[in-house]
Structures are given as C-alpha cells and as structure tokens.
C-alpha cells in the first residue's frame, strides 16, 4: 500500500487510454475522458503515456502518501496543496512519505488528472486498467474510489532540498498550445447529416448550446434550439464512436464520450474532431459551446499536429529526467 484515500472527491477513477479491441463484443472503451491531459501527465513524469492515472471530476481527492513519489497534475486547473505549498499544474512535484495532497475544486474545466512516477498499480483486465463502471471491471474493483481505499505504486524519492521547477512546467506546456476555450468546437459532418433540414443544420452551426446537468462519462447532453429532422424512417442501429453527435427525437444533441455504447440507433448529425474532444471533456454543466464544421482532411491534420506536439513534449521530458537524474 502506498497511499490512502482520505476523501475521494467526485467520481475519482483509475483510467488509462482505454480498452480497445472489444467494441465488437459490446464493450465501451472507457479510458480517460481528456486523453490529452492524461497523456501529458504521464509524459511529464517520464511514464508510458498509457500508464493508469486518477481522473477526478470537479472536486479532487485528498490523498495521504505512505511512500515517497513524484506527482504531476494536469487537466482542469485545480487548487492543490501539500502542507503549505501549492502544487503547480503540469510540473513535477516530489511528495514525501507522510505528506497529504489536498486537491479541492477545479477553478476551470471539469476533469483533473493525477499521475505518479512509474504509474499507479492496477490490475489489467482485458488489456486495460481503465475503470469500466457499467461492467464493474478495471481500475480499483471496477468502481469509483471511496474513503479509505488504498492504491499502490513503486516509490521514487527526490533528494533533500529538491523543489518543483515551475519553469519546466511552462516549457512542457508550450507544446500544448491549443485552441482557446472560447473557440468553437470543430466537427465533421455525420453519416446522417442529410436527414436534417437545412435550417436545422444552420441552427446547429450558429447557435450556442449549454451542457445539461445529466451529462456524464457516457455522453454530454446539450440544450438549445431543437434540431428538426426531415426523415421519417428510423435509423438501423449502427456503429458509433467517441465524439459522435447523436440527435434523438427530442432534437437535443448528445455527444458520445468514453463510456458510450459502441452502437446506437439515433441519427448522427456530426462527429467532434479527435483533437477537440479533450476540450469537450472539460466542459461542465451549464457551460456553453458552439460548433464549427471542418473537413475530414483538416481534422486529421489537427490530430497529427497534436501527436507531433506530444512527441516534442515527450522528448523535452526525457531530456529533463536525464538531466536531473542525480536528484532522484
């Protein structure tokens, strides 16, 4: 045992990048909602990008460490402290045995990620450590963390006097300059886009939608101008993916997220582009969002660009760890 959960925070789960290869058997992929933040946390720590991290929602956990380690916080910006010290985001912060990390509410965003050097120990189930809440598998007993739960990791101690290097954090995040939060979320036209009237498509492109409180890891429910469809037939159930924008008969779109079913029977007006999906994952109830259509080509270019930047970050982090190896 390496740490005890003193307060679990809201829906705090262990997640890696998801469980792939089983969608044909009806499994959702699960996995981190903001895959970019989960990757960043791990890469900064010098972990494999798929190492299990803690994902928390709006309110973070309080953790009592019983072994030394080095942590990194990423995602929505959290107010986090160890004793009297603030923990800066996207930085490496050493923690000593006996110290308590307190993460309170998020100031911006909806989901935060906490990684430890070498990753949290979690049992791999069907090829992934991600918590699959519906099936009750992966993570810690297939569920969200509770008070007094214990998590393990391989310890790593920093030499006396080592302080987190804020400049390093800034250096890392320069590779992640993303579109500003106020920019529209980009999407590609969906397979059933032609089922919707010209006016409805126009509404979808030009109106802003707010995030309904019933949004969760399965999907984001949006509220706004009703999208009327001009189709009379039902869709024959077909494959969906994370980011698919389904429009049920009430005309209020739903964006499918990490825990979504792999098939669905509602027509899809569009699909959020992969590069912008992490921004959707950071929307919280009553936030507003607007959409902008792009081509598949542009979406794929953006995704490739994002991967290149992650590679740059990984190289910078590797350099940092090599350069500072005497400190650990």
């Amino acid at each position: 045992m390496s740490l005890i959960i003193k307060q679990p925070g809201m829906l705090t789960t262990l997640q890696d990048l998801g469980r792939y290869g089983l969608r044909n058997l009806g499994f959702s992929t699960a996995g981190a909602m903001d895959t970019l933040a989960a990757r960043v946390t791990n890469l900064i720590l010098g972990n494999p990008e798929n190492a299990p991290v803690l994902e928390f929602t709006l309110t973070g956990p309080t953790l009592e460490f019983h072994k030394p380690t080095i942590i990194c916080l990423s995602g929505g910006s959290a107010e986090a402290t160890v004793g009297n010290h603030f923990v800066a985001p996207n930085c490496v912060t050493p923690i000593k045995a006996g110290q308590t990390l307190k993460i309170s509410g998020l100031k911006t965003g909806c989901r935060g990620y906490l990684g430890v050097k070498n990753g949290f120990q979690a049992l791999e189930v069907l090829g992934s450590c991600s918590t699959h809440l519906a099936a009750g598998i992966g993570g810690l007993s297939g569920r969200a963390l509770k008070e007094n739960d214990r998590l393990g990791f391989n310890s790593c101690s920093a030499k006396k006097g080592f302080r987190p290097d804020i400049a390093v954090g800034r250096e890392f995040t320069q590779y992640l300059e993303n579109q500003a939060d106020s920019q529209p979320v980009r999407f590609i036209r969906g397979p059933q886009a032609s089922w919707f009237s010209r006016q409805s498509l126009h509404h979808f492109y030009s109106q802003s939608y707010s995030v309904h409180p019933d949004s969760d890891r399965m999907g984001y429910r949006l509220c706004g101008q009703k999208i009327e469809s001009s189709y009379s037939e039902n869709l024959i159930t077909e494959g969906t993916t994370t980011g698919s924008i389904q429009v049920p008969p009430d005309g209020q779109p739903i964006i499918l997220m990490s825990d979504c079913q792999p098939t669905g029977g509602y027509p899809k007006i569009g699909n959020i582009i992969s590069a912008d999906l992490p921004r959707v994952a950071q929307l919280k109830p009553s936030d507003t969002v607007t959409f902008q259509e792009v081509s598949v080509r542009e979406a794929q270019r953006e995704l490739i660009e994002q991967r290149i930047n992650l590679n740059r970050l990984a190289i910078a982090a590797e350099h940092y760890w090599n350069h500072n190896q005497d400190e650990y």
Partner: peptide
C-alpha cells in the same frame, strides 16, 4: 485498423490516421 464493429447492415472500422 484498430478494431471493427459489425452491426445489422454496417461495418465500422476504427483506425489511426497517424
């Protein structure tokens, strides 16, 4: 190709564009 999901009349192919 990462994985494939058959349904009634469709086959969805999940792939990595990179």
């Amino acid at each position: 190709i990462i994985e494939m999901v058959p349904a009634y009349t469709t086959l969805t192919i999940y792939y990595d564009p990179c």
